[in-house]
């Protein structure tokens, strides 16, 4: 079993009378690309902020590489790089200087930080703007800078709170590629996102959190298989007769020569359906599949869309 990069046990937090977290537990293995999904106010950002020290935890434990995030905060914070959802503003210094400051907070001298700062400015397409102030950058560039800041001390764990919120499609794909590369380098990535397809595409594991509770935790594929439903529609040449018995193990409806099956795993069910139909002398005219997505799973678990 691999080591756990992040472990959260029974985490609770209230803001006044509002219980934001009601016992959240998460185990994120080292090197995992992990997604935290939930509607607004579900408790995602609170969870992240407790891990990084921005929010005071009330009950439960939070540890990074086995060490407590409060008692061993110097160690745990040095292992984490966070790109927060809110973009910060600075009036006084160039973005290059701000990266040096940030590296300094993590104990890097200017000499040590220089190659890293140069590399990140180049990687994120900010080299030409390195003398600019933050307010002079476009929204997309501010987002890139946010990421550069998170990566400047080369952390083992990268936490991204809505990293692609408000960015155009081109930049979103660039950021996805970058995150994939970081994951390939062995980094543990914890991502919260409003774009479920983003989590489905990138994450090896996801947790769905709603009203301060984790309601599901697994790989996107497993969640879809367990909780999602897919549809297979088959059009036959001519009207099929006497198929009810042969196909009794499947849930399906029939309208004239069109059969519609509701299955959990279409990849597994399709060959069996086709072979049964062919054995019974049916001629298949066309097949359409409607795959369930993580969004459907999310919807069925929470009873609402992620943006509601």
């Amino acid at each position: 079993m691999s080591n756990l990069a992040i472990q959260i046990n029974d985490l609770t937090k209230s803001y006044g009378k509002v219980e934001a977290l009601k016992g959240v537990s998460l185990s994120i293995p080292e090197g995992c690309f992990y997604g935290l999904l939930g509607p607004n106010g579900a408790g995602k950002t609170t969870t992240i902020n407790i891990l990084t020290g921005l929010v005071l935890r009330e009950g439960g434990t939070t540890s990074v590489f086995g060490r407590d995030t409060i008692h061993d905060y110097r160690f745990t914070r040095s292992k984490i790089g966070i790109a927060a959802q809110e973009l910060s503003v600075d009036w006084f210094f160039s973005i290059e200087k701000l990266l040096y400051f940030h590296a300094g907070y993590y104990g890097m001298t200017k000499k040590v930080a220089k190659p890293r700062v140069d590399y990140l400015l180049d990687l994120l397409g900010l080299s030409e703007k390195k003398e600019s102030r933050l307010r002079q950058l476009s929204g997309g560039m501010k987002r890139r800078f946010q990421l550069a800041k998170a990566l400047v001390h080369d952390p083992d764990i990268i936490i991204l709170d809505e990293p692609t919120a408000g960015v155009d499609v081109g930049l979103r794909h660039e950021l996805w590629d970058l995150l994939r590369n970081l994951h390939k380098q062995g980094k543990t990535i914890l991502l919260t996102t409003h774009y479920i397809e983003e989590a489905e595409l990138l994450c090896k594991e996801v947790a769905i959190i709603d009203q301060g509770i984790v309601i599901a935790q697994d790989s996107p594929k497993a969640l879809i298989q367990q909780l999602g439903k897919a549809g297979i529609s088959i059009n036959l040449s001519g009207s099929p007769d006497h198929l009810q018995d042969q196909l009794s193990k499947f849930t399906f409806t029939q309208k004239d020569n069109r059969l519609h099956f509701t299955v959990k795993d279409p990849d597994k069910a399709m060959p069996e359906i086709i072979s049964t139909l062919v054995k019974n002398g049916c001629h298949i005219h066309s097949i359409e599949t409607e795959k369930s997505s993580l969004e459907d799973v999310f919807l069925s678990l929470t009873g609402k869309g992620i943006n509601e």
Binding site: T52, L54, I82, A84, Y105, G107, K149
Partner: peptide, 14 residues
């Protein structure tokens, strides 16, 4: 006000 304080609070600074 400018959201810079989190930069300090998440860093390994006491």
């Amino acid at each position: 006000l400018l959201q810079q304080i989190p930069d300090l609070l998440v860093a390994p600074l006491s």
